[in-house]
Design a protein around this nucleic acid. Structure first.
Length: 241
DNA sequence: GCGACAG
DNA sequence: ATCTTGTCGC
């Protein structure tokens, strides 16, 4: 699918779109308000993207797991042109078009989607995860690998230990630095849409029985990278759309 | 103006 | 994100 015709092109348009969507975020548990039928709460999905800046290509992956067994239930990918430059605070405009296509390619409708990045922990409270949640109606949360512009103290050493992630501009808790495994750096969890912070942390811990990053993120990351490599090896022609 | 800055 | 060697550890 091509990038939507009304997708923001300039920084000013993107900022205005964030202002428009921000009040639509549900930062606590809330019933599904999106189209597309009832989601399956037994399923949880992970999404991620890989880029080929040379060819202006982006490949997104969506992987659905059984939230109890963590077994892979379904995988989907989508390829497109890069929709926006990388600007801190505007990451969603770069990644979401391809991510939406990958999610649309799934036959299952997962109850929750885990994003690589932030949700409410964002300068304007509309990070990638929250933005995706508002656009799809799905429950979302963000799990990021670095603290971005936020402050935090070092969590305790045990799996499950955490400290508040705070916005230095306002002092409010926007997420949590969570130790998912003993001996690893913490990950940064924040609310996306239709979920509370405690639940978001619980979901993250349920997805990290063995590694620092959620199984959803690991599978999606692996899949979009493989798909990008495969595309480079075969579809040499740069025409995707 | 300069530096920092999810991926 | 992506570019990259060797290295430490399970």
């Amino acid at each position: 699918m091509p990038i939507p015709a009304d997708w923001p092109t300039t920084e000013a348009e993107a900022l205005a779109e964030q202002e428009r969507l921000r009040p639509l975020v549900r930062p606590t548990s809330a019933p599904d308000d999106g189209p597309g039928g009832a989601p399956d709460d037994r399923l949880i999905a992970g999404v991620d993207v890989a880029y080929d800046d040379e060819r202006d290509l982006v490949v997104a992956a969506a992987v659905v797991l059984d939230r109890v067994t963590l077994a892979v239930v379904e995988e989907a990918t989508a390829t497109g042109r890069i929709a926006f430059p990388y600007i801190p605070g505007l990451l969603a405009f770069r990644e979401l078009p391809a991510v939406l296509d990958a999610l649309a390619a799934l036959t299952h409708r997962p109850g929750t989607v885990v994003c690589d990045g932030y949700g409410l922990a964002h300068p304007r409270r509309l990070g990638l995860a929250s933005h995706l949640g508002v656009l799809t109606g799905l429950r979302t949360l963000g799990v990021a690998k670095t603290p971005f512009t936020f402050d935090h103290r070092e969590p305790g050493p045990e799996r499950g230990d955490w400290t508040p992630l705070t916005d230095p501009a306002t002092g409010e808790e926007v997420g949590r630095a969570v130790r998912t495994r003993q001996g690893v750096k913490p990950v940064f969890v924040s609310v996306g849409h239709r979920i509370g912070l405690t639940e978001a942390v619980e979901a993250t811990l349920a997805l990290t029985p063995r590694y620092r990053l959620p199984e959803t993120t690991r599978h999606a990351d692996s899949l979009c990278r493989r798909a990008l490599t495969a595309l480079a090896a075969t579809g040499a022609p740069t025409d995707v759309n």
